[in-house]
Computed example of a mutant assay.
Amino acid sequence: MEYSVLMTVYKKDKPIYLKKSILSMLNQSMQTNEFVIVKDGPITAELQEVIDSIDRDFSGIIKQVDLKENVGLGVALNEGLKICTNDVVARMDADDISLSTRCERQLKEFEQNSELDIVGCSVDEFIGHENNIICTRLVPETHEEIYKYAKQRDPFNHPTVMYRKSKVLAIGGYKDLRKNQDTDLWIRMLMDGCRTKNINQSLFLFRFEEDTYKRRKNWINTKLLIATRYNAFKIGFSSFTDFLRVLFVQLLIYIMPIGFQKWIYKKYLRSHREVNHVSN
C-alpha cells in the first residue's frame, strides 16, 4: 500500500529538528513514494537548505508547497492534502521523530481492516535528546474507546496519525481555527461515521520543551479549546456534563500556578516509564 507523508514547516522551526524529523520518515521500514512539505509562509534560508539537501538525496520524493503568507496549521494542511496523490496520508510534525517501523505498523492495520479511516499510536515524550524520555501519552485503542474518550479529550496524538485523505476532505478538511484544528477534525470525522484505531505501542517520539507549560498556560489557547468543546456539545457529539468537565479542568489549569499544571499533567494526563532510552 502506497502512502503520502504530510508536513508543514514554519519559519520558527529549528533546522536541526526539521532534518531529523524528515529523515525519520524517509528512512521508514515501509518507505513512502511522496513527501509533501507545505511551507506555511516564507521560511529561513537554513530551513530551506535542509529541505533542498534532503531533496537532492531523495530525488523525486519531496514535493514543496510554497504559501505566500502564514495561514495557520489547518489551512496549510488542507493545501498539502490537495497535493497528496495517495489516499492514505501520514501526518508528521517538523520537530518530532517517528520510529522506523511506525508506518509499516500503521499500514498493516489498514490492510487488515479496510474499514479503518484513522490509525494513530501512543507517543514517548522527550526533552533535549531523544533518549531522554520523560513519559508516555497513551491513547485509547479500540474505536468504541476512542469515541467515548473523544467526548472530553483528544483521542489521537495528531502527528502520529495515518488517515484517509478522501474521508478528511469529505467533511471539509481542517477548519480555519487558530488552535485545536485536530480536536475539531476528530469530532467531525467520528460523527461522520469514520472508523478508528490506535496502536497500543509508542512508535513516535514527541519533543517536549521546558517552556511547553508556559505556552499552554495562555488565555487565548484556553478560550479556544473551551469554544471547540462547546461546539462539540452544540452539534450533539458530547453531553453538557462532558463540556462542564472540560471547562472546569481548563479553567483550573489556567488559574493555578504552572507547578499545579505540571502536577496535573504528570499525574493524570501521562504515564511515566522507568526506561530512559528508546531504540529507533
Rank of each mutant, 00 (worst) to 15 (best):
G128T: 10
S24D: 02
F260P: 01
E145W: 06
K217T: 01
K63G: 00
L252T: 15
F35W: 05
L99I: 06
D124R: 15
H143E: 04
S114H: 10
I43F: 10
F156L: 13
K82E: 06
T212W: 11
L107A: 12
D55L: 06
A45P: 00
C135G: 13
R273K: 10
M30G: 07
R215W: 05
S122G: 13
P159V: 04
S114L: 05
I171S: 03
A90R: 02
T228N: 15
N113D: 15
Q64S: 05
R91K: 11
D96Y: 05
L99F: 12
G173P: 13
A232W: 04
N221H: 12
E49V: 04
P42G: 03
L23F: 13
L138F: 11
L116E: 06
I62C: 01
T8H: 02
E209W: 04
E2T: 07
M256I: 15
D242F: 09
M189H: 00
T44W: 08
G128P: 03
Y230H: 11
D184S: 14
G80W: 01
Y174R: 09
I255M: 14
A45W: 02
A232D: 10
H158Q: 07
K217V: 00
E69D: 00
Y10M: 08
R178C: 10
E144M: 06
D57I: 04
C103N: 13
E115W: 05
F110C: 15
G120F: 14
K179Y: 11
S98I: 03
N198I: 02
Y174A: 11
R105Q: 06
W263Q: 15
V275Y: 15
L116Q: 11
V278A: 14
V275M: 11
N86L: 04
